[in-house]
Simulated scan of single mutants.
Amino acid sequence: MIIGWGVLSLIGYLKKDGIYKNYSIDVKKTPYFVLVLDGIHDKIYPWSKELPDLLPDGTKPQNQESVIASTEMTDEENVAGQTETVMQDTETAAAKPKKFIQVDDSYFDDAVFIGDSRTVGLHDYGGLDHSDFFATVGMNIYDLWKDAFCEVNGKKVTLEEALKAKQYKKVYFQIGINEMGRGTLDGFMNEYQNAVEKFKTLQPDAVIYVQAIMHVTQKKSDSDPIFNNPGIDARNQRIQQLADGVRVFYIDVNEVVCDDQGGLKQELTFDNLHLYGSKYNIWVDFLKTKGIGTE
């Protein structure tokens, strides 16, 4: 037994500045083997590795378990922190605002245009022969998902079926003139926003252009209680609010087809509502200034 105490005392003495350096004894009153016993109590054994002076949180370790637990916790926190930083950086990059750039005809090769008779005119006279068009005369937001007006492989299908059949990089949407005088602005916007959300789901890789409703001529606006520009502007202001500059973009063709009073230029239209076939190039040229690029 005496030999055993002697061995423990020798270990305590040799490692008093090592694994037992955080313990203190009065060598005049207490033998060194007490260091070993105290260490064993704290699960610090003679063969344990040397403890650090301070834990990562700046405190002194009390025993081996506290060191391990603290170190493991710190590692987990570091990993979590690094993961969170990476996720934040990724989200920031993904949400980085994009800007409009000039593009050529090929930009529209992977685009689909959805809308009413005005979009039909864009299809017939715009020269965008490589784009797909799902549009029909009289289409409105309330019937958008009900009617089978889209032609896919020679068959008429609903818009949802058409958008499930093929993936696009751009979705151009203009609708709203046929809803004038029908329902309420809030009701219209509720259906419109639902449509945009559905586009996001059905076309996850596409940017979505919500196009302003084209104005009517000032002459018609002044005389028509239903089809007038103040009513159109009220809708356009709400449509614009759906744009986030990252996935959804608002573009307003009225910038290039309206006169100083804000009405559709008389020389561009045959019925105060629709463009002449020869004037759709103005719309197309406008679209070419609204390609999407990154900073």
Rank of each mutant, 00 (worst) to 15 (best):
K28V: 10
D42V: 00
G231H: 14
D42C: 01
L242V: 01
Y107V: 08
G127H: 08
P46T: 04
D26K: 12
P56Q: 07
E84M: 13
Y168E: 05
A95S: 14
I68F: 02
A80T: 12
E160N: 13
D285I: 09
D75P: 00
T30D: 02
D233I: 14
R247Y: 02
F108I: 12
T158A: 08
M87H: 06
V253C: 11
E197P: 05
I208Y: 09
P97M: 09
H274E: 02
T59M: 03
F173N: 04
I232L: 14
Q261Y: 07
E197V: 02
D147Y: 10
V157I: 13
F33W: 15
N78I: 14
V196W: 12
G262P: 02
T136H: 07
Y276G: 00
A212V: 10
A243C: 08
P46Y: 10
G293Q: 05
D285N: 15
Q193G: 01
D271I: 10
E191G: 04
G293D: 05
Y276C: 07
L14M: 11
G4M: 10
R238S: 08
V207R: 12
T136L: 00
Y276F: 12
G126M: 05
E179T: 14
G187H: 13
D186M: 06
V256G: 14
I282A: 00
E84Q: 15
I239L: 12
V157L: 07
L163C: 07
